[in-house]
């Protein structure tokens, strides 16, 4: 595995577990370099000092904090390491909480995931903490300083390791007030709800991340490869994914079922009203319905498959 990002210790109560953090994820985007359009040479970004009118090296720079307009205080590495905070070299566990946020709890907005590896001396304590977290279904909410920033994090057991997920601070999370969201009193008819539920249930399955891949990256790589080899770039493939007509039939089916339900509900209500009025429902003014309910309606049909989105189980 790559170089560790961070060294320190997990702290809770009197227990100290020395650990290292490693990035758990890679960013697989395709990176481009900037070239000068006319000569196709790679451009350089120079660090330039306008006072000396000269290009300087990065080693000749220091960190400055702008405390007022054009007024800076220089912060050195020594200043940073002397920050009087316990979390500088430690992952300070504040609280143990259920591993999965409850329904009424806010979503945990994850910034970055790190694998946590114990130093040899901390292996046993590490295993113990992981075991108990997994057994009790808990996560540890902690604070840690990574790259000059104190971050909130959740420590979770993950297979035989632990994963530290850094979270956004509550004040970093924007409110939803500015969004134009539907109000609570949107009127949804039972039939509409049922229709939506049917469509959703037809597409419900287990989440298996291996089923998904970054198709944009694949297509972009193919374009690059074709250019490298001097071939013409393939046209975007508009060919449909399978199941299009089947989707139409499924939508039709769901819509008809919803309409039938809606009608059955209306008829029931009307029958009840008429009974109250002392009349028999059969004498209603509505045109006589010949096929009364969905179950009775015999159907001649092609054996249309159900939605085929799901992978074969």
């Amino acid at each position: 595995m790559a170089r560790s990002m961070w060294r320190g210790a997990i702290q809770f109560g009197l227990v100290t577990i020395p650990v290292r953090l490693y990035l758990a994820t890679d960013s697989k985007g395709i990176a481009f370099n900037m070239l000068h359009a006319s000569c196709r040479n790679r451009i350089q970004m120079k660090t330039y000092c306008p006072f000396h009118d000269d290009v300087i090296s990065r080693g000749d720079t220091v960190k400055g904090f702008e405390y007022a307009k054009d007024q800076y205080v220089v912060i050195t590495d020594e200043d940073l390491s002397s920050v009087p905070l316990r979390t500088v070299r430690s992952i300070e566990i504040e609280k143990f909480v259920p591993a999965r946020p409850a329904e009424d709890e806010p979503v945990r907005f994850v910034k970055q995931a790190y694998y946590v590896e114990p130093e040899p001396i901390g292996k046993k304590a590490y295993a113990l903490l992981r075991e108990v977290l997994a057994e009790q279904g808990l996560a540890a909410i902690c604070k840690v300083v990574i790259k000059d920033r104190e971050v909130l994090a959740a420590l979770n057991p993950h297979a035989n390791a632990m994963v530290l997920e850094t979270l956004h601070w509550p004040d970093e999370i924007r409110a939803t007030d500015e969004l134009d969201l539907p109000s609570d009193d949107v009127e949804i008819k039972p039939a509409e709800r049922k229709m939506a539920a049917q469509l959703i249930s037809a597409m419900t399955g287990e989440f298996d991340p291996t089923e998904y891949r970054d198709e944009y990256r694949g297509a972009l790589e193919a374009v690059i490869e074709a250019k490298v080899e001097g071939r013409a770039i393939a046209e975007p493939d508009e060919a449909p994914v399978g199941g299009q007509l089947v989707d139409l039939m499924a939508a039709l089916e769901a819509s008809v079922n919803a309409a039938r339900t809606a009608r059955a509900n209306r008829d029931e209500e009307a029958a009840a009203e008429e009974a109250v009025a002392g009349r028999t429902a059969a004498a209603g003014r509505r045109p006589k319905k010949i096929v009364p309910a969905a179950e009775d309606a015999e159907q001649v049909e092609a054996p249309v498959r159900k939605l085929v989105r799901r992978k074969s189980a």
Binding site: Q244, M249, A297, E298, E301
Partner: peptide, 11 residues
């Protein structure tokens, strides 16, 4: 996915 007998309903 692209050719089938249509779905229909009696009554």
């Amino acid at each position: 996915s692209w050719c089938l007998a249509g779905r229909g309903f009696i009554g």
